[in-house]
Nucleic acid binder design. Structure first.
Lengths: 168, 168
DNA sequence: ATAAACTTTCAATAATTTTTGAAAGTTTGA
DNA sequence: TCAAACTTTCAAAAATTATTGAAAGTTTAT
């Protein structure tokens, strides 16, 4: 397979994966494009490459900056802004984990804790089942939270070394 | 907080979390409802409880069965089908991990392997960057795959015991 | 102060996803 | 065999989400 075709395929696959995981398709594609680009690109180049509008490109790039996945770069003597992606895949994974933890896991943990305080007749099967479900999910979510916390601080080789060693 | 209010809040929170992770909102809500229900419910009851149509309820229930998260139950002497959810949260986590691995991770691994075979001028920075990105993602995805594989086979207490012990 | 170069905004539009509900299909018991 | 009880299908409608593009905004150089 040639590079040009491979690039298209990669961008498409990344976009699909993103959309399956609740990330805007275009955002994932822009990220893919920057990830495989050795040079920083301008908004113009990104628009052209992916056939998207200026407004879409602008908003998507801002979102990606918000996720901590890309950065702006200024070239001396130029007015244009260039964008480039962090190429370290472990950093990317950590950054995504960090943001989703903050945006999704933490709010859910907060709700679960509130729901633990539900009151009622302690003999009611409805209440018993409810409390057990909430408690169990809470426990699992707590473990996920702790593991992510470790991952956020860890070096890739240490993390996988430890995990895979345990699991032989 | 009273049970009725708590249930609503739980169903809403579960639905929101689902939609943030690429799972249909209604599907997550039906799952939530069955998860906190001590008894199996009929399509009719689910429709009423969540104010959804018969068609929607039927399709959603089929999807949930496809994900291995709920099952049909037949009550002696009744024509109606009852649905109930596995209440073991670790089983749920495993089931979701298993399905997403199969539906999403494995196809991506397949594409990444194909993309590793890209050809071209080995001095071209475009090609160098592309190959490195693909190789790095491949490695990470491979580690995730192995860890999920372990998780699928493991008991909850063993899994978290091992992971959390390593991470102190 | 002006104009060119560039970025941002956002209402309108388009695309996609979800839901509805009535009709068709199936199963069961008499 | 019939009809009641129940389930499934799917085209149309609704809801949601993403995209466009032109206008407004900003920055910089002269």
């Amino acid at each position: 397979m040639e590079l040009a075709a491979a690039k298209l395929k990669f961008i498409e696959a990344w976009g699909k994966l993103g959309s399956e995981w609740g990330i805007n398709r275009t955002m994932a594609q822009v990220h893919a494009l920057l990830l495989i680009s050795p040079e920083a690109l301008t908004t113009e180049e990104i628009m052209e490459n992916l056939s998207i509008s200026r407004g879409n490109a602008n908003m998507t790039l801002r979102d990606l900056i918000g996720w901590g996945l890309i950065e702006k770069q200024h070239k001396a003597g130029e007015r244009k802004e260039y964008f480039f992606a962090d190429k370290d895949v472990w950093n990317i994974a950590r950054q995504v984990a960090k943001e989703r933890k903050k945006r999704e896991l933490e709010p859910v943990l907060k709700v679960l804790n509130e729901l633990s305080a539900v009151t009622g007749n302690e003999k009611d099967p409805e209440l018993i089942t409810f409390k057990k479900s909430v408690a169990d999910i809470n426990k699992l979510a707590g473990n996920v939270d702790k593991t992510l916390e470790t991952m956020l601080k860890a070096e890739e080789s240490w993390f996988w070394g430890s995990v895979l060693k345990v699991f032989k």
